[in-house]
């Protein structure tokens, strides 16, 4: 019975590590989807000057739909800072980039065409850098997280035994 408990504890530790490494993947998915949204926005704004909410309601993205980002954006036509805070809280971003994104979304729609397109370009370049970094670090980071969790689980098991 004791050994079965120990085995279960180690397995739980491993699964916990796997879950944590999944969070890292979520960060990458958030960046990917946001870049896709911004690229779509830029194209529609540049060629058709489509108003924001028409643009948001026509955008489709599996990940954003799954985590409720599109639902939150299209819930109403409110464009307050609080709304964008709620939207950003659904995505997995680091605090520094979240601050920059909040500033971007709060300003969204208040700038003239040229300035608006420049701001989108700036945010896309920022996100692209982050995307490269996450992609580069992701496999090693996931491996490390899983290993550390597994080892921590084993260590705890030994101590408890």
């Amino acid at each position: 019975m004791k050994w079965l408990g120990a085995l279960l504890f180690v397995c739980a530790s491993y699964l916990f590590g796997k879950r944590l490494s999944k969070d890292e993947e979520e960060r990458l998915l958030s960046v990917d989807s946001l870049i896709r949204l911004l690229t779509y926005m830029k194209r529609r704004i540049n060629s058709e000057r489509t108003p924001l909410f028409e643009l948001f309601s026509s955008f489709r993205d599996g990940y954003f739909e799954r985590i409720g980002v599109l639902e939150e954006i299209n819930r109403n036509r409110d464009i307050s800072e609080e709304k964008w805070e709620r939207v950003l809280s659904l995505m997995s971003f680091d605090a520094d980039i979240k601050t920059e994104l909040l500033r971007f979304f709060t300003e969204l729609g208040t700038l003239q065409l040229e300035d608006q397109l420049k701001r989108i370009d700036y945010i896309v370049s920022l996100l692209s850098e982050r995307q490269c970094l996450i992609k580069k670090e992701l496999p090693d980071k996931q491996k490390t997280i899983k290993t550390v969790c597994l080892l921590a689980g084993m260590l705890m098991t030994i101590i408890l035994l």
Binding site: I45, R49, T50, P51, L52, F53, R77, I79, L108, G109, T110, L111, Q112, L113, Q116, L117
Partner: peptide, 20 residues
């Protein structure tokens, strides 16, 4: 003033660039 402009432009000032 900003809110009024936001309402006038449906939150998308760039859509009204030529008029503005």
């Amino acid at each position: 003033i900003n809110e009024c402009v936001r309402r006038l432009t449906e939150g998308s000032l760039y859509s009204y660039d030529e008029y503005v």
